[in-house]
């Protein structure tokens, strides 16, 4: 799965978990909190949706290290590949 394909799926996930509708451009260096405006509950839901969409598992410790979209894509890519 390419990084662009993952990013495109992530874009849908970010919109689906956000309570308020926002039109935001998503880049790899976008910060999850400061640029995507995902609150703590929305981030939990995001993890759940990512695990379901990509059939992977993300631990709480790993999730705590996610700061940008790039971190999420790296994690997904490593797990999907392996």
């Amino acid at each position: 799965m390419t990084r662009e394909e993952i990013k495109s799926k992530l874009k849908d996930i970010f919109s689906s978990v956000r309570t308020k509708k926002l039109d935001i451009e998503i880049k790899e260096d976008s910060g999850i909190v400061e640029d995507l405006y995902l609150d703590s509950l929305e981030r939990v839901e995001m993890l759940f949706e990512i695990e379901t969409a990509f059939s992977i598992s993300i631990s709480d410790d790993e999730a705590r290290e996610f700061k940008t979209v790039k971190d999420i894509i790296d994690s997904i890519q490593s797990k999907v590949k392996s």
């Binding site: 919109s15 978990v17 956000r18 309570t19 308020k20």
Partner: peptide, 9 residues
């Protein structure tokens, strides 16, 4: 409620 993601409510 144009600005809300209604699936979440």
């Amino acid at each position: 409620l144009p600005d809300l993601n209604l699936n979440k409510i």
